[in-house]
Design a protein around this nucleic acid. Structure first.
Lengths: 138, 138
DNA sequence: CATTCTATTGACCTTAACGTAAAAGTCAAT
DNA sequence: ATTGACTTTTACGTTAAGGTCAATAGAATG
């Protein structure tokens, strides 16, 4: 009801494709690809695409998923699950299993990352030690 | 000097390729690929490959790197950095920069993972709520 | 020795996620 | 009306990390 309500009468800011490519450091090809994949749904003014805030948020989600190694299919699955969780009981329990699966996978990944960070720390230490030796020797 | 010393006289256990594929759930093609890439260096008895403990450990490292989305090139880089850190000062500071880069990348990834886990928790909650509603309704 | 596994090499094949190039349309500014 | 920046569609190209298949070679076991 206030000035922050999002109704049909609001003038929502629309983004052009290059605005978004610049903001996120991706190519136009990538955004068109995501549209082909049904992940974003920009309006059209003539033929040109105009992206909404919701698309922008979805893109952020896609990029996050991409960073942690999810495929487009997996990312789509999560986005859909978030948007409209299934109504039928069987589908719901199935989704619960999938969620548990994914979460376990992510926890393993987190552990792998932490172990690798530790290893990098070790490498760093070795480098610093060597550098100190060399520094002393010269 | 004790029975745990690893000297030339030790009888080290050697692994055949299928032993390793079974242990790690990967294919022989994958192991040969890793050899072509210079990551493992099995001995040969005739033409058959025989892997040592060190190779086995390297394979574990490769798989860990793979899980967190590293490319073979990146994995190789880390393995080499661990095996023989460079001796020259310039190379050392360069490597220190690369280490910092990688670590930052991993920290971002860890954050992404944690955010995604939170999102999965939310989806799970929604599913459980819906299930409870349905359960009540029937 | 014959059979039966298992391994090896070499070659081409596959998939995801875009890259890249071509040809053409849009629109504001000069 | 031309330039220049941006956009579109179409379509073939690329890369990493193996998959798959065929032909061959050892190794082991009855």
């Amino acid at each position: 009801m206030g000035s922050k309500s999002i109704g049909k009468t609001d003038v929502e800011k629309l983004y052009t494709i290059t605005e978004l490519t610049r903001e996120f450091g991706i190519s136009t090809r990538t955004l068109r690809f995501y549209e082909d994949e049904g992940l974003v749904h920009p309006e059209r003014r003539g033929r040109t695409r105009l992206f909404r805030h919701s698309d922008r948020r979805i893109i952020q989600n896609i990029l996050r998923g991409r960073r942690i190694g999810f495929t487009i299919a997996e990312i789509r699955e999560i986005i859909l699950a978030y948007k409209d969780p299934p109504g039928e009981s069987g589908q719901l329990t199935l989704m619960l299993r999938r969620v548990t699966e994914k979460r376990d996978e992510l926890k393993q990944k987190r552990k792998d990352i932490e172990d690798t960070i530790t290893e990098l720390d070790l490498i760093e230490e070795q480098c610093l030690t060597r550098l100190a030796e060399i520094g002393v020797g010269t």
